[in-house]
């Protein structure tokens, strides 16, 4: 007996985006699909890619992370090498968190120097994240754009700063991550604004803001699904690869609290908290995941099928 299931077909296709690598490294290519994720239908030329975050600021790591990345704290270049050659990260998300005045207060030039070091230490594609302080980021992104010795992506361009970030990226041949606070209309708007500036769509990723498991994940899940459906249905401004940053998962009490015996081993639980967040993002349609636990590079890549 044959059963013919209803397979929806879509008029649109997600734009293919390449995160360039240095000499000898492998670029990451995502996008290009015309179907929903994880399903054996339509074209999926590229599997989602899993990368790792490197933070430059001092921070108290949850137990699950302290064990594995703790030894690299204060040494972004060494961590970068380990992420790539030891743990299989396909790209790096370098958060210049140390440039935030509340967290260490490295100067803008220190941040730019770290970017250069990391780029020298590995040939893997790199996305450089700001520090979250509007003022500092306004100086940091141009400095990073200039300092980077090869093309990277700058994260993030939002309504307030997109001219500056996109301008710096254009001048030096970088890409940008367009950011919006879990809102499909703002996501579209910022992509329109970038397009109006003449920024090439093939160098834009969408970051819809990822709420962690138990702390807003459901909002992200539905926004990612809606952005993807809109893109596949023909909305060119949303037909872009989606990046989900799983960092918020580690802010959950459940990801680190060791005082509740009924919750099971906190090291495994923390890892699972990030993993479940990432799996939900993949199911919704994410093309790039940024995780922090090395084991989750492997775990999430298992589900990142085409």
């Amino acid at each position: 007996m044959t059963v013919s299931p209803s397979i929806p077909t879509f008029p649109g296709r997600i734009l293919e985006v390449t995160l360039p690598a240095g000499p000898g490294g492998s670029p990451v290519v995502v996008g290009g699909q015309n179907a929903l994720p994880l399903l054996p239908e339509g074209d999926h030329p590229h599997a989602p890619a899993v990368g790792m975050e490197i933070r430059t600021g001092p921070e108290e790591l949850p137990p699950a992370l302290a064990e594995v990345i703790g030894p690299f704290s204060g040494n972004p270049a060494a961590l970068a090498q380990k992420c790539v050659s030891g743990w299989g990260a396909r790209f790096l998300f370098l958060s210049l968190s140390g440039c935030n005045p509340d967290a260490g207060g490295q100067g803008v030039q220190d941040g730019a120097a770290i970017v250069r070091e990391v780029l020298a230490a590995t040939a893997t594609p790199v996305i450089v994240g700001g520090c979250g302080d509007e003022d500092v980021d306004g100086r940091l992104f141009p400095a990073v754009a200039e300092a980077a010795t090869r093309p990277v992506f700058l994260s993030y361009a939002e309504e307030k700063n997109y001219r500056l970030v996109a301008g710096a990226a254009l001048a030096y041949g970088h890409g940008v991550v367009s950011w919006s606070p879990i809102d499909i209309n703002i996501a579209k708007q910022i992509n329109l604004l970038l397009a109006d500036l003449g920024f090439p769509g093939e160098r834009v990723l969408i970051d819809p803001l990822t709420g962690g498991l138990g702390y807003g994940l459901e909002y992200t899940y539905s926004i990612v699904e809606r952005v993807r459906l809109a893109g596949l249905s023909g909305d060119a401004m949303l037909a872009r690869p989606i990046l989900c940053h799983l960092g918020d998962a580690w802010k959950a009490r459940e990801a680190s609290d060791a005082s509740e015996p009924g919750w099971g081993d906190s090291a495994l639980r923390g890892r699972r908290w990030e993993e479940a967040t990432g799996l939900a993002c993949l199911a919704a349609g994410a093309d790039l995941l940024v995780c922090r636990h090395p084991e989750n590079v492997k775990r999430l890549s298992e589900a990142a099928w085409r």
């Binding site: 498991l213 459940e254 919750w263 099971g264 495994l268 639980r269």
Partner: peptide
């Protein structure tokens, strides 16, 4: 039956 597996899964279910 490890709560470290099930708390995240049940939370994901509660969210979605």
């Amino acid at each position: 039956a490890d709560p470290a597996d099930l708390l995240p899964l049940l939370t994901l279910r509660q969210n979605l």
